[in-house]
Simulated assay, not measured.
Amino acid sequence: MKRWMRKLAGIGLGLSLLLAVGCSDQEKLEVGKTVPEGEKLIVYTTLQAQADFVRAIGGDQVEVETLMPLGPNVWQWAPTVKEMRDIERAHVMVLNGGGMEDRWWSQTYATVKIKNKELLVLDASQGIEPLGLLHYNNRDASEDDKVKKRNDPWFYLDPQLAKQEVETIAAALAKKAPAQAELFQKNAEAYKQKLDQLDQKYADTFSKAKRKEIVSPYPAFQYLAKRYGLNYYVPTTIAINEFPQDKPDQIQALKDDFAKHDASVIFFEGEAAPRVQEFLESIGYQTKELNTYEGKLSQEGYKSYLQVMEENLVVLQAGLNQ
C-alpha cells in the first residue's frame, strides 16, 4: 500500500512539474542543486533536434544524449528501463513538448525522481502556441488514437520557433550551471543568428516557388508551412503504411483527392515504400524525402539541425518548382 502511495505521489509530482515548465516564466523551473564550475552539464533529450541545440549552446561544457532511436513512430516509442536508469545521472532532461511525451513521461519521471531529486525538467516548447495535429491515415493506430485530439509537436521544424526553443534551453542551462551562464548565452546568440539566416533562405526560396502547397502523408511540417505562407495538405485517402494497389476500388477517390491540390511531388518523412512510390509515379507524381530530425544519430552519421534543414530546403525547392 505504501509503495503505491509513493508511486502515485511521484506521478503527481511529475505532472505538477510538467505544468510548471509549461509556463513561460523561467523562474518557475525547479532548478535544484546547481552544477559546480569545472563539471560538465549532463543533458538528456527526447529528440535529436533539442540535443543539437544543447550542443550548440553548451559546446564542450555539456554532455548530451538523445533517447529516441532512429525509426520508431514518436507516438508509439517509450524509453526502456535502461534508458530510465540513464536519466538518473542527468542534470537536465529536455522534453520536446506538445504532448509528444505524454504517454510515458509521468511514469518515467516518477521512477527517475527516486534517485535523481535534483533533475531539472524542461519543456523546450514552453511559450509556443501549439497548432492541432493534422490527422493522417495510419492503419496501425488504435481506435483511441484515431479519434484522440493531439497538438502538433514539430515546433522546431520552423526556424523561428527553433530560435525560441534555443532561448528557452539556454536560459535553463544557465540556471543549472551558473558558472557557464555567460558562455551559454554567448553561444546561443551566435546560433540564433544562424537560425535567422536559415529563416531568410527559406523565406526567399518559398517567395519564388512555382507551387505554394506541400502535400505529404505525414503531418510534421505544418509550422514550417504556416511560417512561409504555404498550404499544407495531409491526405486521408492514402495511408503511410499500406499500398493503394491493394484497394483498387479506392484508387479513383485517391486520384480525385490529389488532383484538387497544387502538387507534382509528394513529400514523405523517411523513405516511402517502393510500392507506394511506384503507384504515385503511375498516376503522374514523384516522391521526395524530408527529414524530421527526431531519432538519435551515430557519431559517424551525425548531421546538425542546420545541415538537415538546409537539405530539406533543397528538396522542397526542387519539389515545389516542378
Score class of each variant (00 low, 15 high):
residue 144 D to A: 14
residue 127 G to K: 00
residue 128 I to T: 08
residue 96 N to K: 00
residue 110 A to H: 02
residue 134 L to P: 05
residue 83 E to S: 04
residue 119 L to K: 01
residue 93 M to A: 07
residue 123 D to T: 12
residue 126 Q to T: 14
residue 133 L to H: 03
residue 99 G to K: 00
residue 95 L to P: 02
residue 117 K to G: 14
residue 115 K to H: 14
residue 113 K to P: 04
residue 114 I to A: 15
residue 104 W to K: 01
residue 105 W to T: 00
residue 77 W to T: 04
residue 83 E to V: 04
residue 137 N to A: 15
residue 86 D to Y: 06
residue 94 V to H: 03
residue 126 Q to Y: 11
residue 111 T to R: 06
residue 110 A to V: 02
residue 79 P to A: 04
residue 106 S to G: 13
residue 126 Q to V: 12
residue 120 L to V: 01
residue 119 L to P: 00
residue 91 H to Y: 11
residue 113 K to Q: 12
residue 109 Y to H: 10
residue 87 I to R: 01
residue 97 G to I: 04
residue 139 R to V: 15
residue 139 R to Q: 15
residue 116 N to Y: 07
residue 111 T to E: 12
residue 74 V to C: 07
residue 123 D to I: 08
residue 118 E to S: 06
residue 128 I to D: 03
residue 101 E to M: 05
residue 113 K to E: 11
residue 122 L to F: 07
residue 95 L to I: 02
residue 143 E to R: 08
residue 126 Q to N: 13
residue 132 G to M: 12
residue 118 E to Q: 07
residue 144 D to K: 14
residue 96 N to A: 04
residue 129 E to A: 15
residue 142 S to H: 10
residue 79 P to K: 00
residue 119 L to H: 03
residue 83 E to Q: 14
residue 115 K to A: 13
residue 142 S to Q: 10
residue 122 L to S: 06
residue 83 E to A: 08
residue 85 R to W: 08
residue 86 D to W: 09
residue 118 E to T: 00
residue 93 M to K: 06
residue 87 I to M: 13
residue 76 Q to M: 11
residue 80 T to H: 06
residue 85 R to F: 12
residue 130 P to D: 08
residue 103 R to M: 09
residue 134 L to W: 05
residue 101 E to T: 03
